[in-house]
Design a binder for these strands. Sequence first.
DNA 1: TATTTTATGATAGTATTGCTATCGTAAATA
DNA 2: TATTTACGATAGCAATACTATCATAAAATA
Lengths: 223, 223
Amino acid sequence: MDFHLNFQVNQKVYLRDPEGSEIGRKIVKSAIDLIHQLGFEHFTFRKLAVEISTTEATIYRYFENKHRLLLYILNWYWSYMEFLVMYGIVNIKDSREKLETVVELLTHELPESSGQMDYNKRFLNQIVISESSKVYLVKEVEEINKDAVFKPYKDLCTRIADIISEHNPQYLYPRSLSTTLIETSHHQQFFSSHLPKLTDVGERGAKDFTGSFLKNLLFKAIE
Amino acid sequence: MDFHLNFQVNQKVYLRDPEGSEIGRKIVKSAIDLIHQLGFEHFTFRKLAVEISTTEATIYRYFENKHRLLLYILNWYWSYMEFLVMYGIVNIKDSREKLETVVELLTHELPESSGQMDYNKRFLNQIVISESSKVYLVKEVEEINKDAVFKPYKDLCTRIADIISEHNPQYLYPRSLSTTLIETSHHQQFFSSHLPKLTDVGERGAKDFTGSFLKNLLFKAIE
DNA sequence: TATTTTATGATAGTATTGCTATCGTAAATA
DNA sequence: TATTTACGATAGCAATACTATCATAAAATA
């Protein structure tokens, strides 16, 4: 049996659905490669256009600007992560075990899905770690938020918060703890790799270390 | 008695010391106002030059680019915060009380220092919340780090980590918990103000809420 | 006091970025 | 077959991110 994973990204994020055409899919796929390679600040539509042998004009027909393209990529990631969380905890009865699974998912490489969505998962993971906060840490955040473009992030937050509340209905900060897990998984991984003195990573790998730290933090907070 | 608070920012951050001239001080002061007003992405040296009636060339003689100027502002903030932490816990014996003081400092407005450094503290606080991660979340982070320009952040991290270890010498992640407190104080305040559904803020103010959440998180983690 | 250094302003210029507009053509659709 | 549409090609423009040069005023030094 073969099945498709299809995450419908909010229409407000794009001008023309990139999933709907060969070139659209190439834009997103190559954008992931190029943002990973150059960093978001040095990434431009012109460079992307050269990379995939098309023109800036074509890319602008799909996305208003590079911020929206990054938002598209992150929406896809957040939706995928929510799916992985739901898929990962199905059949698990113990809420503690569910939360352990969540932390593992947040701190380890994305699985190579068998589907046709052949984004480079390692690059995507790096982008989430290094660039994701740039989509909301902008002056226009509230204006942007009106289009519900952060819904996938909020949904993921809610999903994890629900498991936290299931484990401890008395805990007062399930949503904040949920976003703290997500954001902390990013910056602890980033610091572990690039500014290790800001962490206690030692000789361990960034992902394992971050996983241990987060589990400790999480369970102490709610148990 | 009157005394000067003077934080010597690492020389690698600037080309010419802005503290050493009238126009240099005006550059930093107005940069804080303008970055707060426009957001870092929309902030440019040209706009700053117009604002203080000078030329781009003059500003470029002080700072290589706007990233370095932001780094200067944050170095000043981190040094000031380290001072406030040291000053705030002096004479306190109880390590728990010390940590409570730290969280208060991290989540509340900076005091208007009596000194001559008349940066707008409210704006500075907002900049730290919204823009600080942009100085390290860049592709060139390791190259930049070689100039020790993150030392004030690391010093602040160490200072808080030391108090954590004082309170609980067995705790395994004092530095990571320290950076998590700092970073979480930023994004929980940001989310509380702009994307409140990602938090449990309710009717409370962003700062009080974040303070409560962080204290709960911190003491559960180490006690 | 004379002289040199230094800081700034004025002006110019260049490459890149971010974005819009127009037009022709090929492919898909009606 | 007619018509819509998607894309490529090309042009262009305002803003950004710088760099360079030169004159002058002020400050430091001889």
